[in-house]
C-alpha cells in the first residue's frame, strides 16, 4: 500500500472518530447545559417557604406546596396501579407463557401501548375515567391514567429482572419438589425484586414528570386547599410549570417562580432516576451468580 493511501485511511479514521465523539459530547453538553441553566436561574427561588407555602396573589407570589403534594399523590397512585399489574404481567410472560400466537399478540400490544402518545393517554383518561366512569377530574382518574402509561415500562423492567434470575435457581427449587407457583414466589421474585424495583423507579420518575396525561384528568389550574379524597382535583408540578409559563397573569414577572418550580421538578425526577441508576449499578457489582 502506498503512503498516501495509508495517510488517507488515517485521516478518514480520525474524522470518523471525531464525529462519533462529537455527537456524544453534544448530548452531554445539552444535558449539562440545560441542568446548569435551570439550577443557576432557579436556585435563588428555592426556599423553605417556596416548598411549604401555597401560591398567593393570583400565583404571582408564594410557593408551590399544593403542586408538590399533588404530584406526590398522583405518582404514588400511578405506581400503585402500574406496579402490581406490571409485575404480574411480566411473571406470566417470563415464567408461564409458551411461544405462540397469543403471546405474540400480547407482546405487540405492550409495545404499542408503550408507543401511545401521552396526549392520547390524556384523551383516554378523559373519555374513559372522567366521563364514562364519572370519576370527574380527580386524583383517581389521573393516577389510573398515569399508571397505565407507565405499565409497559414496568413490564419491560420486570421482565428483564426476571430473565436475569438464573435458570439453575428455578431447577434447584423444582427438583426439591416445590411447586412452580411456590418457586416463583419464594425464589424467582425475591431474587428479581431489586431489579424490578429499580426499573419501576424509572417509571415513577416518568409518572412524576408527565404533563399531557393529567391535563384533562387530574390537574387543577389553582387550588390552595389540599385534597381530602381521591375524587379531588390537585395541582401538579409539571402542569403548574406549563400554566405559569404560558397562561399566568404575568409571565415575565413570575419567571423566578417558574425557574424555581422547574428546578424542584428536575430535582425530583432526576433525583428519582439517579437513585435508580445507582442502585442498579450496585446490584450489578454485587451480583454473585
Amino acid at each position: 500500500m502506498t503512503t498516501t493511501a495509508i495517510r488517507y485511511r488515517y485521516i478518514k479514521q480520525t474524522v470518523f472518530f471525531g464525529l462519533v465523539r462529537l455527537s456524544a459530547f453534544i448530548l452531554a453538553l445539552a444535558l449539562g447545559g440545560i441542568l446548569a441553566y435551570i439550577i443557576v436561574h432557579g436556585i435563588s427561588a428555592l426556599s423553605w417557604e417556596f416548598v411549604t407555602q401555597p401560591p398567593r396573589e393570583a400565583m404571582t407570589k408564594g410557593g408551590i406546596m399544593p403542586a408538590i403534594v399533588g404530584t406526590f399523590y398522583l405518582t404514588v397512585g400511578a405506581i400503585a396501579v402500574g406496579l402490581p399489574l406490571g409485575i404480574v404481567s411480566a411473571v406470566y410472560l417470563t415464567e408461564y407463557a409458551r411461544q405462540g400466537p397469543v403471546i405474540r399478540v400480547i407482546r405487540i400490544g405492550i409495545n404499542c401501548l408503550a408507543g401511545v402518545p401521552s396526549v392520547v393517554f390524556g384523551l383516554f383518561g378523559l373519555g374513559f375515567f372522567v366521563v364514562m366512569l364519572k370519576f370527574g377530574s380527580s386524583i383517581l382518574a389521573g393516577s389510573l391514567t398515569l399508571g397505565f402509561l407507565i405499565l409497559p415500562t414496568i413490564i419491560g423492567a420486570s421482565e428483564e429482572a426476571l430473565k436475569s434470575v438464573p435458570q439453575t435457581f428455578r431447577e434447584a427449587s423444582l427438583a426439591l419438589g416445590v411447586s412452580k407457583w411456590q418457586t416463583i414466589l419464594r425464589i424467582v421474585l425475591p431474587t428479581a425484586l431489586p431489579g424490578i424495583l429499580t426499573g419501576s423507579i424509572l417509571g415513577l420518575g416518568r409518572a412524576a414528570g408527565e404533563t399531557a396525561p393529567i391535563m384533562f384528568t387530574a390537574a387543577a389550574f389553582f387550588t390552595a386547599k389540599l385534597p381530602t379524597s381521591v375524587f379531588d382535583e390537585v395541582m401538579a408540578l409539571p402542569y403548574h410549570i406549563y400554566v405559569l409559563a404560558t397562561a399566568g397573569t404575568n409571565i415575565e414577572e413570575t419567571r423566578p417562580l417558574q425557574y424555581g418550580t422547574v428546578l424542584v421538578l428536575i430535582l425530583l425526577v432526576l433525583g428519582i432516576d439517579l437513585v435508580a441508576i445507582l442502585i442498579r449499578a450496585t446490584i450489578r457489582r454485587r451480583k454473585k451468580w
Partner: peptide, 17 residues
Amino acid sequence: VEVRRRIGMVFQKPNPF
C-alpha cells in the same frame, strides 16, 4: 411435584439459593 419430592437431584454446577 410429588415425584420430585421423592426423587431428588443434584446439578452440574452448584446452585445454592
